[in-house]
Amino acid sequence: MSSISSIAVSGLNAATRRMEVSASNVANQQSTGALPGANGTVPAGAPQAYRPLQVTQTAVPGGGTQTSVTPSSPGTVPVSDPQAPFANADGQVAAPNVDLAQELIGQMVAKYSYTANLATLKADNAMTKSLLDATA
């Protein structure tokens, strides 16, 4: 595999990872749980809110990219839901700190990045094929 192809494949993998993480954040954005106490833990037996994730993309020496997935900070925000069985005395629960507008933008960027890297991979394949046809 040429270096152009390996760089494009690393971009495809990064775009895929971004889409997976964003889809998970969107799918779980309403998964509330008990508010953590002052020590950062939730009461025993109470559900924990989904903790959204974020992708960090870094360049690899020699070309390409790699990703790492980490929890977002702050992971949750307090929201009012007095009907929840795990709500605190003020009627608040912890909700994932997910911004749907930002997730949509992130998904669009991942889609365009994937498309661009796929076009690069196809162009590299076509150039290699032309080179091999010319030498035959």
Score class of each variant (00 low, 15 high):
Ser3Gly: 11
Ser24Ile: 00
Gly75Pro: 06
Arg17Thr: 15
Ala87Lys: 03
Gly62Arg: 12
Gln107Phe: 06
Gly33Met: 14
Ala101Trp: 08
Met127Gln: 14
Thr120Leu: 01
Gln107Leu: 14
Asn88Val: 09
Leu53Tyr: 07
Pro74Phe: 12
Ala123Ile: 02
Thr135Ala: 11
Thr120His: 01
Gly37Phe: 09
Arg18Lys: 12
Ala87Thr: 07
Asp90His: 10
Asn88Pro: 03
Gln66Met: 15
Ala116Asp: 07
Ser6Gly: 02
Asn25Pro: 09
Gly33Leu: 02
Gly64Ser: 10
Ala27Asn: 05
Gln57His: 00
Gly37Ser: 12
Ala27Cys: 04
Ala126Asn: 14
Ala101Gln: 12
Gly40Val: 13
Pro78Leu: 01
Gln57Tyr: 00
Val9Lys: 12
Ser2Glu: 08
Ser6Gln: 04
Gln48Met: 13
Asp133Thr: 10
Pro36Gln: 04
Gln107Asp: 04
Pro36Met: 07
Ser73Val: 11
Thr115Pro: 02
Pro52Lys: 03
Leu53Ile: 00
Ser5Cys: 00
Ser24Val: 06
Gly64Gln: 10
Gln30Lys: 11
Phe86Ala: 11
Ala101Tyr: 10
Asn125His: 07
Tyr114Val: 07
Ala89Glu: 14
Pro43Thr: 05
Thr135Cys: 02
Asp81Leu: 09
Ala59Gln: 12
Thr65Arg: 11
Thr32Tyr: 07
Gly40Trp: 04
Ile4Leu: 14
Gln66Thr: 11
Ala38His: 04
Lys111Gln: 15
Gly45Cys: 02
Pro71Glu: 15
Val93Thr: 00
Ala136Thr: 09
Pro61Ser: 14
Ala15Cys: 04
Val42Ile: 09
Thr70Cys: 00
Phe86Thr: 01
Gln92Arg: 05
Ser10Leu: 08
Pro43Phe: 06
Leu132Met: 13
Ala95Tyr: 04
Ser68Leu: 12
Thr70Phe: 01
Val26Asn: 03
Leu35His: 03
Gly106Pro: 10
Val77Cys: 01
Pro43His: 08
Ala23Arg: 04
Thr128Arg: 08
Ser73Trp: 01
